[in-house]
């Protein structure tokens, strides 16, 4: 029953195929593709391969055009306009760079939020990377229960989601209660300038959350560490290098490219995390929750999101650049 159905289907399919490849628009004859019986293309193996390859990634090209390229340029375009919703239609008036100007000069919140974001990222990214590296090094030691440790340190990646984290933060579960009780930290904090002390204190309050962003990075470093040839360590040991020296001279240089990857991943994941104040503000502006007409609506939020994107890319470039400058001057 089913077999006859399929054989009928395949017969139908071959007939359709024949019609598709033997008509006046497109004709396949003697290894030649003929369009409109005028344009003749020789079907070499290479051409056939590239055609098949393109047909496999065709869905990606379509998706990229619709869901990436068009939105990117459309939001850039919108950012130069004042957009008003008039029923279903949009009323657009050209603004030049006024939207960008308003973000810095007029908007009472944006610059403050953005600076807060930059400070946070600049402080949190190195901490995340260093901790991820330390934890990866620890797990890479000959210890018992490697799987259990990896499971624990990867757990946050599974359960990190906006509302859950927000609730934990509200209840103070993301600060270790004992950290504040250490006298030495309090002593340091009380004796420095409050402009330095406050961010440090906030850092201690949020250290847990910062560490929770390190899950993927730990795996990245771990995979890198396991790829390093053990013989190099043995050779260096024969030459009298201790663990400290071999870390700086062998381990770190060989996983340096991975540090760049981790930095990019950390910055991106922290920037698009749903509790990030900047992106919440952008969404609120877009949905028109402010009453001030000048800093409201689609056009302005598009401008904000582009500013945010530029800042993000700059942060990534600066971090990765710093890493590479150091490498060059050392060698």
């Amino acid at each position: 029953m089913i077999k006859t159905f399929f054989s009928k289907l395949s017969a139908l399919w071959s007939r359709i195929k024949h019609v598709l490849t033997h008509n006046f628009i497109f004709n396949i004859a003697d290894n030649k593709w003929v369009f409109f019986s005028v344009i003749k293309i020789k079907a070499t193996n290479k051409k056939r391969q590239s055609l098949i390859g393109l047909s496999f990634i065709f869905i990606w090209i379509v998706g990229y055009l619709i869901f990436a390229l068009y939105p990117i340029f459309n939001s850039l375009y919108l950012s130069f306009f004042k957009v008003k919703l008039d029923g279903a239609a949009l009323q657009m008036t050209f603004q030049g760079i006024n939207n960008f100007k308003a973000a810095f000069l007029y908007d009472p919140y944006f610059v403050e939020i953005l600076v807060g974001y930059i400070l946070e990222i600049v402080m949190n990214v190195p901490i995340t990377i260093v901790f991820a590296l330390i934890i990866a090094l620890l797990i890479n030691q000959p210890i018992k229960g490697k799987g259990i440790w990896r499971t624990i340190f990867f757990l946050p990646v599974i359960i990190i989601s906006g509302p859950v984290i927000a609730e934990l933060m509200r209840q103070g579960a993301t600060t270790l209660p004992s950290i504040r009780e250490y006298d030495i930290i309090r002593l340091i904090l009380n004796n420095v300038n409050p402009s330095v002390g406050t961010p440090i204190q906030e850092l201690f309050d949020r250290i847990l959350l910062v560490l929770w962003f390190a899950g993927i990075q730990i795996l990245i470093f771990l995979a890198g560490l396991q790829k390093i040839d053990r013989e190099i360590y043995e050779a260096s040991m024969v030459d009298g290098a201790g663990p400290w020296a071999s870390f700086w001279k062998i381990t770190l240089p060989s996983i340096k490219p991975l540090i760049s990857v981790s930095i990019i991943y950390t910055v991106v994941s922290m920037s698009v995390f749903s509790l990030n104040e900047v992106i919440i503000y952008i969404r609120n502006v877009m949905l028109g929750e402010s009453t001030d007409a000048l800093i409201n609506g689609y056009g302005y939020s598009a401008a904000l999101s582009w500013l945010y994107f530029i800042v993000m890319v700059l942060i990534i470039l600066i971090f990765v650049g710093l890493l590479n400058v150091r490498r060059r001057s050392r060698s």
């Binding site: 290479k46 391969q49 590239s50 055609l51 098949i52 390859g53 393109l54 496999f56 990634i57 990606w60 090209i61 990229y64 869901f67 990436a68 068009y70 939105p71 990117i72 459309n74 939001s75 919108l78 990019i264 991106v268 920037s271 698009v272 992106i279 952008i282 969404r283 877009m286 689609y298 939020s301 598009a302 904000l304 999101s305 582009w306 945010y308 994107f309 993000m312 890319v313 990534i316």
Partner: peptide
């Protein structure tokens, strides 16, 4: 498969990771 512009398309594909959804979400 090898096809023209493969490298460029691949780089574009990787770039989409960095573009934050805030840029594309409005359109």
């Amino acid at each position: 498969f090898n096809f023209p512009l493969k490298k460029l398309l691949f780089v574009l594909m990787l770039m989409t990771f960095i573009v934050p959804p805030q840029i594309t979400m409005l359109p």
